[in-house]
């Protein structure tokens, strides 16, 4: 029997998560590499149209679990539903989208199966000693090449953007219930509510120009020069996570402007011009802004990963460069 690759699909409000398609693309590539087949796994309650969405890919089988304990995501029921099937069918690889949901439970699944975990994969190659996985380390400053040295199923999550969704081949999958799902699945979380973080009035997704502030700014009292640059550019202010966590970006009432956070836990933006000042470029930030048409990076560290995706870069002290830039912009905008 050929080796199997499974892809566990994430969804929300009746739609497949964008990164589920990227995970399918990764699974298909992986199956091609090892000469195996790829199947999808869809868990939820009242799956309905999701089955049609998920089976429209080139998958050998779409396995489904439709159970009321899976109505709201919870690690207890997810791990309990998946464990026996993976143990018995022993797929070579199970691919997850690297999302806040997957990473909440797939290590737990790994523990239950004693399976190897490779989180945040951004690429792989097939070498003499088997598959070598690439993943970012040290905030994306470096990358590691890692190998699984034990045998058995490997669980991996694929980082956003590493395997583009348009690489997911379409097709028509056979739909089957996932085998060996135990009866009496129960949730280990009592879901109380879902909240919007901060002020939902701030919508950076439509901004044409964004001045984004990073940790390199150095303090709440040092933000003013960036606000001045934003003013002459007619730009919106955004920030990376550390700036928000440190409480450096405050509104007129002294409240932290968390709604201006850009990145995987904040907004995803695609302006014409994005000026990243003092942002090193951790992958969690990059996924939220790499769609910008033109990216300018200003950072004192010439090895900062932001320079890899920026179009223009200036190495230096942002507190010198930003005021100079404000002046230069003002001169041409008059």
């Amino acid at each position: 029997m050929s080796e199997q690759v499974w892809v566990v699909l994430q969804h929300r409000e009746g739609k497949l998560h964008r990164m589920s398609k990227e995970a399918i693309a990764a699974g298909q590539r992986l199956a091609g590499e090892i000469g195996g087949t790829v199947s999808g796994v869809l868990l939820g309650s009242g799956l309905g149209d999701l089955v049609a969405q998920a089976s429209a890919f080139d998958l050998a089988t779409l396995y489904t679990v439709d159970d009321s304990a899976l109505q709201d995501y919870n690690p207890g029921a997810y791990v309990a539903a998946l464990t026996p099937a993976i143990r018995e069918q022993a797929p070579a690889f199970v691919v997850f989208p690297h999302t806040y949901q997957s990473v909440d439970y797939f290590p737990r699944l790994g523990q239950a199966l004693d399976a190897a975990l490779v989180p945040e994969v951004i690429g792989f190659e097939n070498g003499a000693d088997g598959l070598i996985w690439q993943r970012p380390i040290l905030g994306g400053k470096l990358q590691a090449r890692v190998r699984v040295k034990t045998s058995g199923t490997v669980l991996l999550s694929v980082q956003s953007g590493a395997f583009p969704a348009d690489g997911a081949a379409a097709g028509q999958a056979d739909v089957e219930p996932l085998p060996s799902v135990p009866s009496g699945l129960t949730s280990d979380r009592e879901i109380l509510e879902v909240q919007q973080v901060g002020d939902d009035q701030v919508d950076l997704t439509k901004a044409d120009v964004i001045v984004a502030i990073g940790r390199g700014v150095g303090g709440a009292d040092k933000v003013e020069s960036l606000r001045e640059l934003a003013k002459v550019l007619g730009a919106d202010i955004g920030a990376s996570r550390p700036v928000i966590d440190n409480g450096w970006l405050l509104d007129a009432d002294g409240n932290v402007e968390r709604e201006r956070q850009i990145g995987s836990s904040g907004q995803t933006v695609a302006p014409k011009l994005y000026i990243a000042a003092g942002i090193s470029g951790a992958i969690q930030h990059l996924v939220g802004m790499k769609g910008a048409t033109c990216i300018v990076a200003i950072n004192k560290d010439a090895t900062a990963p932001i320079f890899n995706i920026a179009h223009y870069g200036i190495v230096g002290d942002l507190h010198e460069i930003v005021p100079a830039l404000t002046e230069a912009v003002a001169a041409v905008k008059g």
Binding site: L117, V118, Q143, A310
Partner: peptide, 16 residues
């Protein structure tokens, strides 16, 4: 389960 074979600064791609 895992072994780090190598770490490196990433290719800068086209770079800035």
């Amino acid at each position: 389960h895992l072994e780090i074979l190598e770490i490196a600064f990433p290719d800068s791609g086209d770079g800035a």
